[in-house]
């Protein structure tokens, strides 16, 4: 199970220069088990901060993040996270990186190796098992990061603009790969992006966030049939959804442009 509940979550930062900044303003929503939920919003709206709160890497100022009714009080293996930067361990080979999570628990060596092999194959890097991260392209590194999280069998997958640094073709390929894996693995996903196409292509539901302070200003149930193919982005209904989100975001982006950055 992996039901994520965000209950009246607020997050404030205090800095000497700018005083108190409200990053998130009493956010509430619920992601049912096995749903692919996407949060889209202008940069600096606090969408990544929200993920770190669910991951337990940071504490809410008020409100609760819950997974299956249990309040998040710290990081844990039940909520795996994929970061935008390639956070692989450079001293470990691809296989050892993927084995990292399982090796922290008392899993037998055989089970550990089997799990790692399975997910390295699932992301198509079987031939690169013994390579080090520096030897891989950005897209390949992100595939390893995905395999590493999946090998840990989390209930919830938190993804913080994981394909943001990739070129267009690689990104499209990675989105297809992720959807294929998600359809097989059936995990809850909370995915953050600023790319509207990416949000609609991937998500069951898309939450549109406002500029700071971050609030949810629109919720879109994406009624596009699955499995989705890359050319779905040209369909009429896709374009209608996109127009709606763009209209919502346009005024928000305008707002952020007139605000001093942090």
């Amino acid at each position: 199970m992996g039901r994520v509940s965000i209950e009246q979550v607020s997050l404030e930062f205090r800095t000497r220069r700018t005083g108190t900044i409200v990053a998130l303003d009493s956010l509430s929503f619920e992601v049912p088990d096995k749903q692919f939920a996407v949060i889209v919003g202008p940069s600096g709206c606090g969408k990544s901060s929200l993920l770190t709160l669910v991951a337990g890497l940071n504490e809410t100022t008020s409100g609760y993040c819950k997974v299956d009714g249990r309040t998040v009080s710290g990081p844990g293996a039940d909520r795996g996270m994929v970061f935008q930067s390639y956070s692989l361990f450079p001293w470990l080979t691809v296989r050892k990186n993927v084995e990292f999570g399982p090796s922290l628990r008392n899993l037998s060596a055989r089970e550990r190796i089997e799990r790692a092999r399975h997910y390295v194959d699932a992301v198509g890097l079987g031939d690169f098992e013994d390579a080090y991260p520096v030897q891989l392209s950005g897209g390949m590194q992100q595939r390893v990061a995905l395999a590493r999280v999946l090998a840990n069998d989390p209930e919830v997958l938190l993804m913080d603009e994981p394909f943001g640094a990739l070129d267009n073709q690689t990104r499209t390929h990675m989105q297809g790969l992720l959807l294929g894996i998600w359809e097989r693995e059936q995990k809850t996903v909370l995915f953050v992006t600023h790319d509207i196409d990416e949000a609609l292509f991937l998500g069951d539901v898309v939450y549109v966030m406002s500029a700071r302070p971050g609030r949810i200003i629109d919720t879109i149930d994406v009624g596009l049939a699955r499995p989705r193919r890359y050319d779905i982005v040209t369909s009429d209904s896709f374009v209608d959804y996109k127009r709606r989100i763009m209209a919502r975001l346009h005024s928000e982006v305008e707002k952020t442009m007139n605000v001093m950055p942090l």
Binding site: T52, A55, P75, R79, S87, P90, L104, R148
Partner: peptide, 24 residues
């Protein structure tokens, strides 16, 4: 980010020191 990644993979603080900080 290396620490954050290892925490979300289930590492304890001690494991973050021995398995991430030291080799890094």
């Amino acid at each position: 980010d290396l620490f954050k990644a290892s925490y979300t993979l289930g590492a304890t603080r001690r494991q973050v020191v021995t398995r991430v900080l030291v080799p890094a």
